[in-house]
Amino acid sequence: MFNNIDIESDFKYSPKDKLNQSNTIISQLLYYLNKYKKFVFAIVSLVLISLFTNFPLIPHLRLTSPKVVIILAANEGGGVLKWKGAQEWSIERSSIANKKDYAQRHGYDLTIKDMTLKKRYSHEWRESWEKVDILKQAFRQNPNAEWFWWLDLHTYIMEPQLSLEEHIINNLNNLTTRQLNDFNPLNIKLDAPYVDYENNPIDLVITQDCGGFNLGSFLIRKSKWSETLLDVWWDPVFYEQMHMSWEHKEQDALETLYELLPWVRERIAFLPLRKINSFPQGACSEQSDDPRYFYNEDDRDFVVNMAGCDWGRDCWNEMEHYKAVSKKLQTPWYKFW
């Protein structure tokens, strides 16, 4: 009855055969890896360099493409370039955690840039221009993002429940001004030709404080215009010719570009300082009675920028104070007090 059945055919691929077959495949794979090891090593190196350093040789791999990328300037890790004390570590941890929580809540991307690397610019007199170079890198690393939000380390997001879209981006035209008619602390003279603001979108959103343009917290949209602006802003003419004259370096460079070039002005808009950049008491001390500058708890200002706290103030105490205020404001029972 069973004489016609080929028993061996039912066990054509025995466990031993399967093991041999697997070994053959592995041997072939190892052969090709060894044959093309230089090519494989180069590809792996490029991927690692792109993903884990400031050199974006290929776009970072992502499952999604966030609309907003937050860039936080930090000194993550310290090291031989700057030994940090306990309070400095605490400030950094608090600032980074604040931005990580905010980015995660709203589906944004967060990239942390180690500012100790700024020493590599010293021989070119552009030690304060690293902000521009980092923005150029971020554009390349995030080709599908639309907006980039730069934040200095000594900033704290006080109202994390507010998305950037809700707070600013979706209502840019109503929240911003395009000219300096109402607030011009530097008395910038604009005698250049007419600029058509109405037919040009807003690509750079900044604020002004008592010293002029403030770049501690600002938004820039990725566009051909912004890429061109960064290229011009990074031009050697500025840092080679003017590095001894401009006290605020990259800020002074942007102010000069704004004043001299109509095509730069046409896509820059100004937010009130407290919309994205509120100061603590002690900053802009000569304007201590002007409510346009300083954080107001009752108005629930969005961000505090402790600008200049390391020049005669206490950065750690200020950070701890605003952390506590933000925590209090987010508690459900606060509104009943």
Rank of each mutant, 00 (worst) to 15 (best):
D133G: 06
D133E: 14
D133Q: 12
I134H: 14
I134C: 08
L135R: 10
L135N: 12
K136N: 08
Q137A: 11
Q137F: 12
Q137W: 14
Q137R: 15
A138D: 04
R140N: 13
Q141I: 10
P143C: 07
N144V: 06
N144P: 10
N144Y: 15
A145D: 00
E146H: 07
W147M: 04
W147S: 03
F148M: 05
W150R: 09
W150D: 04
L151C: 01
L151F: 08
D152W: 05
D152L: 04
L153A: 04
L153F: 05
L153W: 03
H154W: 07
H154D: 15
H154N: 13
Y156E: 07
M158E: 07
E159W: 08
E159D: 10
E159T: 12
E159Y: 06
E159R: 15
E159M: 15
P160A: 09
Q161H: 14
Q161W: 09
Q161K: 13
L162D: 08
S163K: 06
L164M: 15
L164E: 11
E165C: 00
E165A: 07
E166L: 01
E166P: 01
H167Q: 10
H167P: 01
I168K: 03
I168F: 11
I168D: 04
I169H: 01
I169D: 02
N171D: 13
L172Y: 03
L172C: 02
N173S: 08
N174L: 08
N174I: 08
T176L: 09
T176K: 06
T176S: 07
T176G: 04
T177D: 09
T177F: 00
T177P: 00
R178V: 09
R178F: 10
Q179T: 15
Q179R: 14
Q179G: 09
L180I: 11
L180P: 03
L180C: 05
L180A: 05
D182S: 13
D182N: 14
F183W: 12
F183Y: 15
P185T: 14
P185A: 07
P185C: 09
P185I: 15
L186G: 04
N187Y: 07
I188F: 08
I188Y: 02
I188A: 01
I188R: 02
K189Q: 14
L190Q: 05
L190P: 02
A192M: 12
A192E: 09
P193K: 03
Y194C: 08
Y194M: 09
V195A: 01
D196R: 02
Y197H: 10
Y197W: 10
Y197A: 04
E198F: 00
E198Y: 01
E198K: 12
N199P: 03
N199S: 14
N199L: 06
P201Y: 10
P201I: 11
P201W: 11
P201K: 06
I202P: 03
D203H: 14
V205Q: 01
I206G: 02
I206H: 03
